[in-house]
């Protein structure tokens, strides 16, 4: 009797956990569906083409053109990844291939600590250091006037925020490259850098791309730090010293306050939906690629 009771308990617990697991996996679907339902009124009354490519943003008249915000997001993200990827590649290769064990032990913890710093602190730092740096020292060489609150400031702050993500994934990917391959290259007389270039980087190319895509999607959705340093002007930026107004900042600045304007609520949730869909796809693809790499060489 007691045996069967134990087995029944085990079965019940198993079923309960199964239900919980399946439900939790559906969370992503639930978020997508919820955002879609709430932005449906906007999608029904406006063409999606016009929403994405019009610059007319007049909520009071019912016109919602997301183009400036989408461009703001793209500028900031592009700058961030252009700064971060080369630096992180060099840093990752150094940690993995060149650095002495003791130096590794110093660098890696600090990269970890960097990942723990809250976005708002990055924002404060950006306002204190990066914005004045751009306004006083960088921008004057190129343009007549810039307040410093610009897509460049957003890009630099974001770049630092995505360092830890990229480096940790790169290190994982580099770890899957078999040592024998590198040894073979070295024994043929290749220098260490040549081995890195022709063996390590070549072998880890899919992983490096996956890391970059993940970093892009992280930069895409970052809100508060970008909101603090980008200037939030709803125009399409034309240079890196122009202010920009990325999508997440749009949501953060207006949501919860402007709900009395018809469709405004739908419009903001539509921008959340855009973010969600793009980031979901980017993440799903790159995580899938990474898990394949891991499985192949594990």
């Amino acid at each position: 009797m007691s045996v069967s009771l134990r087995i029944i308990k085990d079965k019940i617990a198993g079923r309960t956990m199964l239900v919980l697991t399946v439900l939790s996996v559906l969370l992503a679907v639930l978020i997508g569906a919820g955002l879609y339902l709430r932005s449906a009124p906007l999608l029904e009354s406006h063409s999606i083409w016009k929403l994405l490519f019009s610059s007319e943003w007049k909520p009071m008249k019912g016109e919602f053109g997301f183009f400036p915000y989408i461009m703001g997001t793209l500028w900031v993200t592009a700058i961030a990844i252009l700064i971060a990827l080369p630096l992180c590649l060099l840093c990752g290769i150094y940690i993995h291939e060149y650095a002495h064990h003791r130096i590794q032990k110093v660098i890696v913890p600090f990269v970890d600590l960097l990942s723990g710093i809250p976005p708002v602190v990055f924002g404060v730092w950006g306002v204190l250091v990066i914005v004045p740096l751009i306004a006083d020292h960088i921008a004057p060489h190129f343009v007549e006037f810039s307040t410093g609150y610009s897509v460049l400031a957003g890009g630099i702050v974001l770049a630092i925020m995505i360092f830890p993500l990229i480096i940790s994934i790169l290190l994982e990917v580099f770890g899957t490259v078999p040592k024998e391959l590198k040894d073979a290259s070295l024994s043929l007389g290749a220098t260490q850098w040549q081995t890195v270039k022709h063996v390590l980087l070549k072998r880890s190319l899919p992983g490096i791309i996956a890391a970059a895509v993940l970093a892009i999607s992280r930069a895409f959705g970052e809100t508060i730090a970008v909101l603090m340093v980008c200037g939030n002007v709803a125009d399409v930026p034309h240079s890196i010293f122009d202010a920009g107004y990325p999508l997440p900042a749009l949501i953060a600045n207006n949501y919860g306050e402007m709900l009395s304007v018809p469709m405004y609520d739908s419009a903001l949730l539509f921008s959340a939906l855009i973010l969600f869909v793009i980031i979901f796809l980017f993440n799903a693809v790159s995580r899938y690629v990474l898990s394949r790499i891991e499985k192949k060489y594990a």
Binding site: T21, I31, L35, G221, F276
Partner: peptide
């Protein structure tokens, strides 16, 4: 199969930005 799907979906959810969770939380 379920294990891999669960792991993958949490990897993906990990990447969803907090502003989306905030907006979704607000609609709830």
């Amino acid at each position: 199969w379920l294990g891999s799907v669960t792991r993958l979906s949490y990897d993906v959810l990990f990447g969803i930005p907090s502003i989306v969770y905030g907006a979704f939380g607000f609609t709830i």
